[in-house]
Each structure stands twice: as C-alpha cells, then as structure tokens.
Design a protein around this nucleic acid. Structure first.
Lengths: 183, 183
DNA sequence: AACGGCATGTAACCCGTTACATGATTAT
DNA sequence: ATAATCATGTAACGGGTTACATGCCGTT
C-alpha cells in the first residue's frame, strides 16, 4: 500500500527509473521505508496500469533500455489524497530484538549482557550514520533541487531517526546497568 | 519466523491455548509484536509438527474443545538457541507516518500542522498507556507467577516503549515548532 | 434483540524477500 | 580474475491480514 505512494512521491520530484528509485530510497527513506527491486518493478507496473504514472523508453546499448516514469495528473491527485489521510493510528511495530529480550529471563546474566552490549554498538554506530551520511545527503539534495520546503520536512524526518537512535542507546545503557545489578 | 518463538516463549511460562496466547500478547508484547488468531493457529500446528510443543485436548460443552499446548524438551532447546542469536542487526522499520511527512512538502502549512497535532495526541495517550495499563499488567503477572527474573526483563522492555513514546512526543512538539516557523 | 467473550479453524489475498536470469562496462 | 554498477525483469516462497464459518453463553 504505502510503497506505491513512496514511489509516486519520488517520481513527483523528478522523472526516474525503477533503478533510480531504489537508490534514492537507500539514501533517504531507508530507515523508515525500503523495498527491493523485485518489489519495485511490479509495483511500478501497477501504478502505470492505474494511470498514476507514465513511462517513456530510453534506448541503451549493452544494457536493458531505461524505462523512465513520469507522474500524471491523476497520480498527483492520488498522492495528495494519501498525504491528507489523518494520522490517527499507531504504526504496528515489529521489533525482534525486544521480543528476544522479553523472553531472555531464562538466559544467564553474562549472555544477556553480551546481547545488550552488541546492540549498544550497533545503535551507537547508527547515531553517527544519521548525523553524518544522511544529514549530508539531505543537505546536498536540498541545495541541488532547490526544494526548500521539502528540505525542511526531510530534515525533520532525519531528526526523528537521530532522536530514535539516541534514545535507543540511552535505554541500552540503562538496561545494562539494571541487568548487572538485578540479575 | 519470530512468531514461532514468541508463542514458544509464552507456552514455556505455562501450558496454554491459542486463544490464551492471543490475549497474553495483547497484554504484553503488543507494542513490539502481535499476531492475529488466523496466524496463531496454523503456527501452533507447525510447532507441534516440529516436536517443539505437544497438545492435550480438554473437552468442553457448547464451545470447541480446548487444545492446550505444552513445551517439549526440544522446544526449550530451540528457544534457548534462538535467544542466543547475536543481536548484531538493525530491525527494518516501516513507519508510514514518517513516509507521509517526508513527502508532505506539497501540502499547505495548516494541513501539515493538523497532521502533526493529531499524531501528538495519539502518542501522548500512548505514553500514559505504557505508564499505567502495561506497567500494572506486568507487575501483576510478575507477582502472580513469581517469575522475578523474567519480570526484570519485562519491565525493561516496557521502559523502552515508554521512552520511545516520550521521544516521539518531544519530536512532534519540535516538528510543530519548526513547521510553524519555517514553512 | 444485539453485541462481546469464548474457542476453534479455513480461504483468499496482499506484501515482501530471496533466488534466478541476462549481459555489458568499469573498478579493484 | 573478481566484484560492483548499470538495468530490466520473473518465480517461488513466506509472513501477515481480512473475511468467513460455527455456535453457545452472558450482558446490555
């Protein structure tokens, strides 16, 4: 469902191919939405069948021809409607890490601590990714495309990611202390 | 994949039915893992085929007979192995709300603010749910089952949820300010 | 009279991942 | 030599949701 609108959103910024879409998703929405090419290509076909995008073929040599998609009026309208859907729901989260910890009472103290320390490392690294790579990518694209308004939203979403990872790190440090003291 | 281990984990605490499992998940793991009954029943069958759980039928009148599952030795071993899997990965998050905001630059200021305010309300309520209902449920179950060790882990996971929602609220307040000022 | 709780399950469908297939060019 | 990048796609499978089916009991 949402993938359709993610693809629409990018194509609205500029006409592009399925391959391009994958790259832009990796650069920007990666931490709250991704998709594999195997899912992107059929979804683009669906969007075209629905009349929300149109394709133009750019011939190439040695590679498959490029299929460049452009958003239609109907597509813009559909996107607008989706964007206005009231955000009155809680996303259903699936966090296998928390599930493991929830049932980890049967493990010995040292094993639990090893698990928590590993996660701590992963999330500390992730804080940096948000503060450097992603921040730079957003600034560059904002400058390049001059989408000032959109840039504000992109940066806000990035800040969510940074805040999320920081809170994760803080919680892990707390969890390590508690397990050390109480188990 | 992970659902199998969630079910195993609960059945290890005490023998129970598919219907019970659904209820306990709603009370406890709901905010990082859930499943519908339509998924739980077939998964229990798979677990039984694998020899990780065994069932016993308790006849009833006026309702379908209860099928009470108990964990086996093989099941305990399988759970233990899963719990020890190194947590060296980032969970792949799908957050439709962030996706919407990412592309919301095309909306007018007031519509974006309305969206953010709605989310703010949802997450403020959610902070309270974690601080009251969920906290009480965990304390009650910990006292009742005397699973002291597990209780520590349950409480830690609950604290994650509370921290997550608080950080969400803080971010939304920040986002509202930024949109008011910069758009 | 209608709804929610108890208790099991099946069927159809959608979403997403992994693997496979092709094949030239460029970088290591 | 090997791997990565470019560029398209299909097929098989697994995970998850929604809808449907049955039927009693107690509450509103």
């Amino acid at each position: 469902m949402a993938l359709k609108y993610a693809l629409l959103g990018f194509i609205r910024y500029a006409p592009m191919t399925g391959y391009d879409l994958k790259k832009y998703m990796e650069l920007s929405t990666r931490y709250f939405w991704t998709a594999e090419l195997a899912q992107i290509y059929p979804t683009l076909k669906q969007l075209e069948d629905a009349g929300w995008i149109e394709s133009e073929i750019e011939p190439q040599v040695g590679k498959p021809d490029k299929k460049i998609y452009t958003i239609t009026k109907a597509g813009k309208k559909a996107q607008q409607e989706w964007l206005k859907q009231p955000l009155d729901f809680l996303p259903t989260v699936k966090e296998p890490v928390l599930l493991q910890l929830f049932f980890s009472g049967v493990l010995d103290k040292e094993t639990i601590l090893a698990q928590l320390r590993l996660q701590l490392q992963v999330h500390r690294d992730q804080v940096k990714v948000h503060q450097t790579e992603i921040k730079d990518a957003i600034q560059e694209i904002t400058l390049f495309t001059k989408l000032q308004r959109d840039g504000v939203m992109w940066e806000l979403v990035r800040e969510f990611g940074e805040g999320y990872e920081k809170q994760y790190v803080k919680w892990l440090e707390h969890a390590i202390k508690i397990v050390e003291e109480k188990l």
